[in-house]
Design a protein around this nucleic acid. Structure first.
Lengths: 143, 143
DNA sequence: TAAAACAAAATTGCACACAATACAATTGCC
DNA sequence: GGCAATTGTATTGTGTGCAATTTTGTTTTA
């Protein structure tokens, strides 16, 4: 009878726990990131910059699955805080290059404690975490 | 040398693919939900209402992991579209009861096709989907 | 080489999320 | 009954997230 609507049950949706989990995790980061004066999105942006030092907006967007509409205001805020600079590429003035500043590099030391603090919140075994990680990247890969 | 910062690598973060996947999936829903004149958040709200017919805001928030700051404007929009009514409980005027209308019920038939359309987008085997589902709920359970 | 096609960012506008705050109704305690 | 604490929503302000459009610059081609 109700089979027609079985697919519409919240409990049968894979998307829902994904969506809810994502928001719950970001919420858990908040107290630690507040200490660094970073939002979650700013944090993952800084992760890329700490690894690469310098990157243009297009590539940054590809790394983070974010577009310029999200990144432009975010990067301007990071620039105002003095952690990055934004300048046009000499070779091609359309390209905007984001570079980590000395101050931005310093922030990395404070941030280094965050992952350990967060890992306490995730109640999965290391193996479960790996499995989850693999499955998520498999989904993302086809995106 | 760089071990100190190993935890900060984007590739070592579980939160990141979770966050990215969540947004990518919501994005894939968009064209189908546009046809129903629903946003993703409105859609999962309707999922609950299609199952329950009636629910108060507090319980709805617990189901969806959303608070009143998100739900209040969202429910007002659903009310304006004529799919739900909002009225205070007689027993306790603080409680707001959201009820599906006849029009809202009709929408369920159109929505019934969405899950099948979406399942094509998820390139996981049924077993992988179940594993992912279980792991996500395990994380959520501790949230 | 001038115009068209293309590309990268920025801008704009709408829709969430959510913390913080406000507010109104209710409950508990004396 | 009176009043403080609690509870359930609503409001406000900030920060995304993204589609659509515009601006600016580059490349292609007629």
């Amino acid at each position: 009878m109700d089979d027609k609507y079985a697919g519409l049950k919240l409990g049968n949706q894979l998307c829902f726990p994904l969506y809810a989990c994502s928001r719950e995790i970001v919420k858990k980061y908040k107290p630690y990131l507040d200490e660094l004066d970073l939002t979650y999105t700013q944090y993952i942006t800084m992760l890329v910059l700490w690894e690469q030092g310098q990157i243009n907006v297009k590539e940054l967007g590809e790394c983070l699955y974010l577009d310029s509409g999200t990144l432009t205001p975010l990067l301007k805020k990071l620039e105002m805080k003095g952690w990055v600079t934004r300048q046009r590429a000499k070779e091609d003035e359309r390209v905007l290059i984001v570079t980590l500043t000395k101050e931005g590099k310093k922030l990395r030391d404070k941030a280094a404690e965050v992952p350990a603090k967060m890992s306490c919140c995730v109640k999965l075994t290391p193996e479960e975490s790996r499995t989850l990680y693999t499955l998520l990247y498999k989904m993302l890969g086809d995106a």
